[in-house]
């Protein structure tokens, strides 16, 4: 069900700083909200987003329950070489979702 939505430019000039936008469907349940019986709904959040560029980590975010539902994270990276950007979201139980996006870098 959880399908990430990621924007990476398909092509970029070598050395250009590109903006990457990521969205993933997730309730980011804080652990502070009671259900209708007054019991706290257990915390269920994505705690980490990692971006690897041709295998090398270029960005990592640690997320707390204060991040809005369906987390949106945008950041930048330098277009160094043609290859693949891999995104990995991990929840507190270790469950993860991945997405890959190709990028072509031209001189």
């Amino acid at each position: 069900m959880t399908r990430p939505l990621v924007h990476v430019p398909a092509t970029a000039r070598k050395g250009a700083v590109i903006t990457i936008k990521t969205l993933i469907a997730h309730p980011m349940e804080t652990g502070y909200r009671p259900d209708e019986n007054g019991r706290l709904i257990p915390r269920d959040i994505i705690g980490e987003l990692v971006c690897r560029y041709n295998g090398k980590e270029v960005f990592r975010a640690e997320l707390a329950p204060a991040i809005a539902a369906n987390p949106y994270v945008a950041f930048t990276t330098v277009a160094t070489e043609t290859g693949t950007l891999e995104f990995r979201w991990t929840d507190l139980t270790g469950k993860h979702w991945t997405h890959t996006a190709p990028i072509t870098v031209v001189a």
């Binding site: 939505l5 936008k21 969205l23």
Partner: peptide, 16 residues
């Protein structure tokens, strides 16, 4: 912005 609009997550889910 389609890459910032969280409603697009539902559009894509619906597409599947």
């Amino acid at each position: 912005d389609d890459f910032a609009n969280p409603g697009m997550l539902w559009v894509r889910e619906g597409e599947a």
